[in-house]
Amino acid sequence: MKIAVIQFPGTNCEHETLVAARAADLSGEIFRWNRPAEELCAFDGYIIPGGFSYQDRLRAGAIASKEPVMDALREEAERGKPIIGICNGFQILVESGLLPGLGGVDVALASNVMVSKGEIARRGFYCAWTTLRSETPARRCSGSFLLDKGDLVSMPLAHAEGNLVTADEDLMERLNEEDQVVFRYCDEGGRVETEFPVNVNGSLENIAGICNPEGNVLGLMPHPERSSFAWQLPPTDSAKSAGDMTAPGPGRRIFESMRRYIEVMR
């Protein structure tokens, strides 16, 4: 199973993302944006990693979403291949309409607004560990294929624009009904508190990740590749020093899910 980690100018998480995917027994390579797009069809799945593609010019993800490589990815998505967008990758998938995949650009990842006790406590870039609650049944989505509803996964986030908003009043209902909300920010006990610091960026209904109706395309703001090894965990997590340097961290479940999805679907 071979995946492509897509590299745009300004991407900055491609190496650790590939390392994390390999640790989950996926093989793959980094795919530079200006390589011939038709080479993409040789891969079984795709990850768009984090970074600042094209310097976030216009809006985060806006320029990259218009690259020919994204047209090729759209075709592969229609064939049912998995695509996971992480952080800036999520922003690119939203800008390209692949997420939530309802035909247009239906949501946006706006600037973070941290609200505490009804007041704005902070704005802008924020880097911290967070806990995600899996909101869909196992096998619903490529990147959470192995996670049951209610499972908790901790990983870091680092972004200035992860605040999911929409102008469509009915959209949230639809996303919830169709099981397209894959991850929500919660506390360590799994409670979804609507204020900062649990809702770390002001996102609607604490949304951290969504998938398309088919479930093969997933976008999430936090970084599973930075939580793929136990030693990457915060010191307050007792699993940090367990095992050797290859011992898994919770984020590896995302990549293992992707691998399992590919195995099952092809």
Binding site: G124, C127, P156, A158
Partner: peptide
């Protein structure tokens, strides 16, 4: 201040600002 900083990029962070007197990274995989 340090919440503005992406202390995690490259995925090498072992000890981050605020956790100890020094930051610590594992910079080479393997």
């Amino acid at each position: 201040i340090y919440r503005y900083y992406d202390t995690e990029v490259q995925g090498n962070a072992v000890i981050r600002p605020g956790e100890a007197d020094a930051g610590l990274i594992a910079p080479v995989r393997g």
